[in-house]
Amino acid sequence: MEGILAIWQRDLTKFFRDRARLIGSFSMPILFLLIFGGGMSGSMETMMAGNMPEGTEGFNYVEFVFPGIVAMTLLMTSIFSAMSVIEDKDFGYMKEILVSPISRVSIAIGKMLGAATIATIQGIILFFLIPFLGLSYNIMALVQVIPFMFLLGCALSGLGLLFASIIRSTQGFQLTVQILVMPMIFLSGALFPVSNMPAWMDVVVKINPVTYGVDVMKKIMIDVENIPAPVLDAMGLNLTVLGQEVTMFAEVLFIAGFAAVLVLFATFSFQRANA
């Protein structure tokens, strides 16, 4: 336990100490919010309105995309924070960790929690932009979504740890992750509804863990019950897998399971590592 805490705290301390990284990581999601929230909302809403019957209340794209951008921030920060494993190897510190009596599973969990915490903090910081975007979310909903953001962060940093254990160089890691992260975002429903996809793409959407993360976040943050069915439909908030509508419980379970499996992978890789 002490070991997990020590590894977690070290990564956090280093995050807050690295000014460039701090500023850089805050500006990226803000940029995305400006582009997607401000720039694209007009055309997206017109497009969506075409799919809806006359007279139904409009579709607020910014309200739709905000949870998606938060999820995207979680994805990018979690995975890139897992890169600290490769950096630790490059700078030799991983040896200090590996020769110590900390259990290997504690190393994996500590690293995962560190990356997930950093990601969650960044996600929460985006909440402060809500008033400036002309949005209003229920405060309780925002509070409720935070633990889930952390869980999603764990699953995604687990994914990052997996890449970090396979790829040895930071350059290779960045390249691979960029190639992987983009489709994971685009095919998750974070930025636009993914309800009417070609069959093969639909398969990718359904195996993408980010899809369920985004879906849960939207379900918590957007007041789903008071939205008419056609709008809900247009927003893609009726995710089905194999014809079955998925429950939030099942989604949370899936993400927790995903995180657990990845921690095991990471533990295994630390066990074999000779740094």
Binding site: F91, G92, P101
Partner: peptide
């Protein structure tokens, strides 16, 4: 194999915890 971004004290404290 020191963490150069941390202080000497912090490096030692981490070791104590490990």
């Amino acid at each position: 194999t020191l963490d150069e971004k941390l202080t000497a004290n912090e490096n030692l404290m981490l070791h104590c915890r490990f």
